[in-house]
Amino acid sequence: MAVAGTASQLTARSRRGVFGFGWNRLWLLVVPMTLFFIVFFVLPVLSMFALSLDKPAAGTVAAKGDFALTNFIRFFSQPLYYESIFRTVAISIASSVIAAVLGYPLAYLIAKTEHPGRNTFLMILVLASMQLDGVIRLYGLMVLLGDNGLINGSLIRWHVIGSPLPLMYNVFGVIVGDVQITLPFMVLSLIGVIRSIHPSLEEAARSLGASPGQTFRRVILPLSMPGILAGMLLVFALASSSYVVAALMGGWKVWVLPVHIFQQVSNGGHWQFGAAIATILFVVNISAIFVYQAVAARTSGGRI
């Protein structure tokens, strides 16, 4: 970032120096995007916050501005609702830890693969699995994990088990789904960091007598921490807010925040309460960013 910033500053300066004009109207380029984001991003998010502070009125979508904390009081006074915060956070933390452990070796392999063809092939696999519609991937997972699915069906047919294992429509299924969906994001955020660790550091540790395991634990892993943490934050944000994973893999039995939001809005028309839960989900994710920054500052010793 620092290098990029300096480079672009130099660019702007030299441009002005050489031509004296020309790029003064550079800001015009960012006007469409800025207007678009203010009108269709900032204002909508603000109107949702406003709606969450309205008195409940079933069926009414528009924000009216009759200020009341009713929705939030209702949320935090009933275990059915407030417990779903802990459930959401626990599932998301579990997913981000599993994704980090699972994603690290693949990211390491891709970062150390110099052969251009092989590297591109692996990158295509990761990027394609990131960009493929999540619902399609969940279809595959559900066929694999369902009661009559490939795993249970085969095990029953081979008389290994008598009744199907509960692999889906529970918390386990949701975590598996979240890990599957978010793993490419974790891998991508790790590759850049691992590649930026200079190979000579590894060689120095080895030549000073460290075993490969020690080198990994004492040198590579600490230097990878920024990428691991950034990836975990991304996985947390994606897992905590995924409605479709919780709905399909949890089968409406795992009540996380996005399922509550959908339930309130789509089945009851309780837009104000739904907006309040959406606001709470938003706050949970913002808090995750603060936790990330605190942990990142500590692990990097102030290097970030």
């Binding site: 699972l102 994603g103 690290y104 070796p105 693949l106 390491y108 392999l109 150390k112 693969t113 110099e114 052969h115 092989r118 696999l125 990761v126 699995s129 493929l132 399609i136 991937r137 969940l138 279809y139 595959g140 997972l141 066929v143 694999l144 490939l150 890990v179 599957q180 793993l183 490419p184 891998v187 490969p212």
Partner: peptide
């Protein structure tokens, strides 16, 4: 080759991650 330099825990872990990524797609 660069793959030969990597230790086997890395390779096994990477293979597991690829299975998690690709198995659902293969099933579809």
């Amino acid at each position: 080759s660069d793959a030969a330099r990597l230790s086997w825990p890395i390779k096994i872990g990477a293979a597991m991650a690829l299975i998690v990524l690709l198995l659902p797609v293969v099933i579809v």
